[in-house]
Nucleic acid binder design. Structure first.
Lengths: 263, 263
DNA sequence: ACCTGAACACCGTTCAAGT
DNA sequence: ACCTGAACACCGTTCAAGT
């Protein structure tokens, strides 16, 4: 395949997952001088993204980590974006979906609320563990196998709520867009603490202190002091935890109320 | 002020809004050869971000638009990130907060549900109109005047729900992280359509068709056909609209149910 | 089939110099 | 006080060449 052909297909394709089969398979071919293959490239990319963040991630930096030239990587992936899409789907494999969520045909006594909590917690964990996931999940088409498995699990659980079909996609949004937003903020906060080299609590109180020094802000901030204090929890971590679980219960309660009304 | 000093302060600062007063004021100084000032720079940046997206935005591109050298801009802002923070806060000024949301001291007969809907709709509109806002809002500290005004308005409205103080931050999350997630996906979708040069409906059906061609995906996709069809609305726009408003009602209903239980 | 080196067209930012 | 030009240390990606 000539470079020109590849370039043409690249711009037409909406996702790596739509590339043709020949390249899709990949896997270890063995016997290469450098021992390179797609799996190893993607795994290294994930490790690097976790360690140094999306902003610092580059094809050249990745190649150095793999002890090859930058251009070697391009034999296995067409573009940086394709590679990021592969990395993105990889970490969605961390959600423990198949083990816990019953399939369509299976009978199960599990309560949909518990299943939904489980999926929400899993999703949040992915976003917090890998802060680079959020901007990518918002950008790409998201049709990798792991993401699809996750999202089909979500659909199966929502089906059990008793909501009419016409409102099920909305319920999915209410739960998982909330988790996406929450996990995004939380992940970035943690990333910032790490970058600044201070603990979560330290970073938090430093930020408050800094904001309070700006006169235009501080006087209006006084009004929201009460709400911050009543939030509960001694550490930032506990605050996040309480907010997340309470908010999740609010949304679940909203679905219940909706079912009771329309069902 | 020497460059070295600036560099030092830059790395210590957590946000543009914490820079010292001398620079903060800014505004039109007049009489400069190029007529440059912070407001004009930020306004041009917003226009450029809207037109070409965050990925293509660069200091050099911006400078060209302003008919100056790239380095002229650095007289008014310390870094590209600072400029992006300023642009971010600017568009939050588009939310019509002060006109509609009553202050703390004011008596108002307005229902908190209506006020909350209004704020949610405003926030979504910002995210959809400016798809570059979402990754920035997730990254920065977000303490610009317009964002703070918006977020204090949110706090005032939530206070009227009757929820206990300890659960108000969670309720804020439930509503506005959902809107953030929803607006993010929607904004990126619209951006992608524009980039591909096709209508929303065309892009949508093309994407479905492309996904269906991958055998591993298509057979499992069949199961979610029903849910997509029952969603309602003939166009993608109508689908987004229905999902958003239904999901918002679910969350509002969740807050109501919570109030009824604990209040 | 796989990998490299040089090159192109970009970045953000620094620094010393101009007016 | 404001603006420029040259330079540094980077990018993603192309292309022709190597083994």
């Amino acid at each position: 395949m000539v470079a020109a052909e590849r370039a043409k297909r690249r711009s037409a394709r909406a996702s790596v997952w739509l590339e043709d089969k020949a390249r899709r398979g990949g896997g270890a071919r063995g016997g290469q001088p450098s021992g390179l293959d797609r799996d190893r490239i993607v795994a290294t990319a994930v490790a690097l993204l976790d360690a140094e963040g999306l902003a610092k991630f580059s094809m050249r930096r990745l190649a150095a980590e793999l002890n090859v030239t930058a251009m070697s990587v391009y034999w296995y992936v067409d573009t940086k974006d394709d590679l990021l899409e592969l990395a993105l789907d990889t970490v969605f494999g961390e959600t423990g979906v198949p083990a816990t969520i019953p399939g369509d045909e299976e009978e199960s006594t599990a309560d949909w609320r518990d299943l939904l909590r489980e999926l929400a917690v899993d999703y949040r964990a992915v976003l917090v563990r890998h802060p680079w996931v959020s901007p990518l999940a918002g950008t790409f088409l998201n049709i990798g196998p792991n993401y699809l498995e996750f999202s089909f699990a979500v659909q199966r659980v929502i089906r059990r709520t008793g909501l009419p079909l016409s409102e099920q996609t909305a319920a999915i949004s209410a739960v998982f867009q909330f988790v996406y937003g929450f996990g995004t903020i939380e992940g970035h906060f943690i990333e910032r603490c790490a970058a600044a080299g201070v603990s979560h609590d330290e970073y938090f109180s430093d930020a408050i202190a800094a904001v309070m020094q700006v006169p235009e802000i501080s006087h209006v901030m006084e009004r929201s002091k009460a709400i911050m204090e009543a939030r509960g929890g001694d550490t930032v971590g506990e605050m996040f935890e309480r907010d997340f679980s309470t908010a999740l219960e609010i949304v679940i309660g909203g679905i219940e109320a909706r079912v009771a009304r329309v069902g």
